[in-house]
Design a protein around this nucleic acid. Sequence first.
DNA 1: ACAGGCGAAACTTTATACAATCTTCGCCCG
DNA 2: CGGGCGAAGATTGTATAAAGTTTCGCCTGT
Lengths: 235, 235
Amino acid sequence: MAAKSQPKSDAPDASDRVSRIREGVTAAILEHRLLPGTKLGEDEIGDIYGASRTLVRTALQQLAHEGIVNIEKHRGAFVARPSPADAREVFEARRLIEPTIVDHAIDAVSPDWLDRLGRHLTEEREAERRCDARASVRLSGEFHRLIAEMSGHSIYLGFLKELIARSSLIILLYRRHDTPACGTNHHAEIVTAIRKGDKVAARGQMLSHLREIEAELFLKDPAADELRLADVLGA
Amino acid sequence: MAAKSQPKSDAPDASDRVSRIREGVTAAILEHRLLPGTKLGEDEIGDIYGASRTLVRTALQQLAHEGIVNIEKHRGAFVARPSPADAREVFEARRLIEPTIVDHAIDAVSPDWLDRLGRHLTEEREAERRCDARASVRLSGEFHRLIAEMSGHSIYLGFLKELIARSSLIILLYRRHDTPACGTNHHAEIVTAIRKGDKVAARGQMLSHLREIEAELFLKDPAADELRLADVLGA
DNA sequence: ACAGGCGAAACTTTATACAATCTTCGCCCG
DNA sequence: CGGGCGAAGATTGTATAAAGTTTCGCCTGT
C-alpha cells in the first residue's frame, strides 16, 4: 500500500491501468522510496496494483525507455543506477535544453500559467517548511516540468521528462550533503524573471540553478567503484 | 565499468526477435516504403516476421515511444503523421542539439572514427550516383547518427535517434522538390571541419546544413489542412 | 574441508485463449 | 433517395498457461 493512487499530480491519461502503474512506480523512484538496484519483480508489482503481468510488463518497458529502469534479459527489471559519466551527460543536456525552454515559456506566458507557477512555488515552500523530503524532491522536479509544459514544445517536454527522472536518481546517488535537492529560492527567482518577461535573466537563472545542483554532487569517476563496492558489501 | 545499460534502445544484439521487428519496421518507415497514416495491423506484421502478437506489440510500443508510430486505443497502430508544428519543433531541437554534438565529436576524434566517416561519405556518394532514393534517405540520416555515436554522449544519441526518425517522416511529407534529402556536399564539408578539428566551422556547417534542410520544406500552417484534404481525396 | 557439478525452484519470455471494443455493411424508416 | 439504426465481423486489450533460462542450494568426489 505504498502508492496506490496518486492524488492528481500529473494525469494526462491516468485512466489507463498501465499508466497508473507507470506513474506509481515513477513516483516511488522519484521520491526515493525505491533505491537504485532494487529489483522490480513482475508478480510483486502486479499484486500491488491488482494487475496482470502483461500490464506490468508494458509499464516497465516504458520506464526502461525513459532510462530510470534497466531490463536485463532473463533477469528482470531493476531501478537504474546511473554512473557518474551518465550523471554528467544528463546535466550537460539539461544545461543545453532548459535555458531554451525557459525562453519559449516566456513567449507563451499567460495569467493562467503564472497562476500555476505561483501555486507551485507555494506548494514547494509548504513542503520545505514541513521538512517533507519526499514531497520536496518530487516538487522540485515538477517545477522544471511545469516550465517545459508551459513552453508548449512537446519535443523538449518529452526530453526533459527523461532528464528529470534520471536527475532524481542521480541526486539520490551522488549528492554530498543532505541539502534539499533544488533551492526554492532559485525557482522563485526564475519565476520572477518569467513574470518580468526578461529572457536573459531567466536563462541565466536557470543555468546557474542547474550548475549549482550539479556542483553539490560528487561525480569523481572512482566514486562509482567505491559505491558499487559498498553496495556489494552491504548487501 | 560504464558498459551497463547498453541493450536498451538500439541494436547491439539484433538477434532479439523484437529488435528485428522494430528495426524492420523502422527501416521501412525511414526508407519511405511505409507512408504516414498506414495502418500497422498486429496480425499483419506478425505474419510477416513469423512472430506472435506479443512480440509485435512490444515492438510497436517502442516505436510509439520513439514518435514514429501512433497507437490509438482500440484502433491500432499507424505510421505517424507529424504536423507542421511538430516539424518545426523537431528541427528546432536538432538545431539546438546537433552543433553541440559535433563539438563533442571533435573532442573524441580518432583515426578509426575518421575512417568510418570517410567510408560513410563514400557510401552516400555511391547511393546518390545510382539515384537510389531509398538508400540515400537512410544514409543521410545515418550520417548524423554516426556523429552522435562518435561524440560518445548516450543521452544526445538517444535524443537524436528520435529526432532523425521523425525528420525522415517530415521530409517525406513536406518537402517541396524532389531534391535529395541531405546534400552530400554539406556532409563532406562537416567531415572536413571535423578532420581539421575546427569546432567553430563544424558547428557552423552543421547549423547551416540543418537550416537548409528545413528551408526546403513547406511548413505553412494552413498547408496542413491542404495536405490532409489532398490525402483524403487521393485515397 | 573444499571445489565442482547436479537438480530444483523462481523468474522471465513466449504463445494462446478469451473478452471488450470499434468498424463496417446492410436494412429499415422517413 | 438519403440518413439513421443494428447486427456481424474484425481487431485490439487482457489474462492465463506453457516453455526456456538463470540462479541458488545441496550433494558428491577428491
